[in-house]
Nucleic acid binder design. Structure first.
Lengths: 233, 233
DNA sequence: CTGATATTCTATAACTCGTTTGAATAATCG
DNA sequence: CGATTATTCAAACGAGTTATAGAATATCAG
């Protein structure tokens, strides 16, 4: 039984019908999410506006390939770009795009394959601090917030009051952190390995440390105070 | 600059690193959303549990093709299946899967191509009734709710108190609807054409009619009262 | 205008996806 | 058990995607 759905209006045989165009349009956005490099690039642009070259370096792919993938994301309405002098900067197009990524990760997290990959990448689960709790504890002078992301991402925007110590410098710059309060570390999001790794390192070095649930994009989307500053690299 | 992100642990040259596996896992779910038939099938299983044959007929594709696409959706964790006698029934795996579809549609709706396709498929925008408003008006005896979806979808689950009149039978069964209260029509969701078409038809026939915002899945997810009954076809 | 830098485009090759067809498998009914 | 029905699998083809290298374009500094 094919091509007989009278209620939807006639003309089905071989014809491209409006309903198909609509599903095609939705699938077009789905296609933007159908490649691992694009997922990674999407997470990176969610940290702030960055050039193609900077994104390619972070995702460890060639500039040409990053450019191609970013254009697919742009066609899917997930990112926008603007030219500034000689470089083209990409950002997340709007908050719905991050909500979509989060929904994707929520569904994926139920799959065994994701769970295994996450466990292997993130290491043993570390106890997390909630956002509201963190606000209260910082206000009480009871905790200090550390941003473990690369310096350019901190510069593009970070949790108000946080101090920037990229994960790679954490051990050498340990002295900058107070010893009398708990350290709360955050990074890019729930599937970023920096904060679990940073917390593990801090504990090995004898400090009290926990990670923030989620990361910077979620904090910003929750409407909590952020500081945003210097231009992108 | 490639393969030099020291903070993420070494061993990058040619090796498949854990981070890639994680992004690959997310992209796997994205791939499930990257085909128009799969989007349509996802919307259909969101109406209730249905057999492969029934879904293939609704989506106007062959049974073999529907089976293949449903298995991609299952691998992506979006639907589940169970065998009942000679047939295999598919349903939405969990509410997060519908939330993902909704997030996808929200992003897509910002694209010009989607907007055009939606306008062409749904026709001129029709004023909608909110869910809470509808609950109040039905309680006050001020409105009657009509489910325009095919009878099997109504049977699988519907808004409590709604009457089933499939769009194709609306004109001939007009007498079943009261003339003294407003008619509120609903169907599968915000991108389903049945309720706008049904409302337009009712108005042409001299009735007071509006459509419900969204459709049955959204109503159910909002925790509002539903009735669920007979087995799937 | 020229040269340098950043990004995009083009061509190409390997690979994956979508679809159709017909065969294989599973469960039911006589 | 054999026939029937529903679903899945397998092969095969065309179409689309990914990745690479190198050419083309755009902007800026001189």
């Amino acid at each position: 039984m094919r091509g007989t759905d009278a209620a939807h209006g006639a003309a089905t045989v071989g014809t491209r019908v409006a309903k198909d165009d609509l599903h095609e349009a939705f699938a077009q956005v789905g296609k933007a999410l159908a490649n691992p490099h694009r997922i990674e690039l999407l997470e990176l642009v969610a940290q702030g506006e960055r050039s193609v070259e900077a994104l390619a370096a972070r995702a460890d792919i060639s500039v040409a390939l990053a450019s191609a993938h970013l254009q697919v994301l742009r066609r899917g309405g997930l990112v926008t770009s603007r030219r500034v002098g000689t470089r083209v900067l990409y950002v997340l197009a709007h908050d719905d795009a991050y909500a979509l990524l989060a929904a994707l990760q929520a569904v994926a997290s139920r799959l065994g394959t994701t769970e295994q990959a996450a466990a292997r990448y993130l290491g043993a689960p570390v106890e997390a601090v909630g956002r509201e709790e963190l606000v209260a504890r910082v206000r009480a002078g009871d905790a200090v917030v550390v941003d473990l992301r690369p310096a350019e991402e901190f510069a593009a925007g970070h949790i108000a009051g946080a101090v920037s110590i990229p994960l790679s410098e954490l051990e050498t710059r340990l002295a900058e952190l107070p010893t009398d309060v708990e350290i709360v570390a955050y990074c890019r999001g729930p599937y970023c390995a920096m904060s679990p790794q940073g917390v593990a390192l801090l504990r090995r070095l004898g400090r009290r440390a926990r990670r923030l649930e989620d990361g910077y994009p979620e904090w910003r989307l929750a409407g909590l105070p952020v500081e945003t500053g210097g231009g992108p690299g």
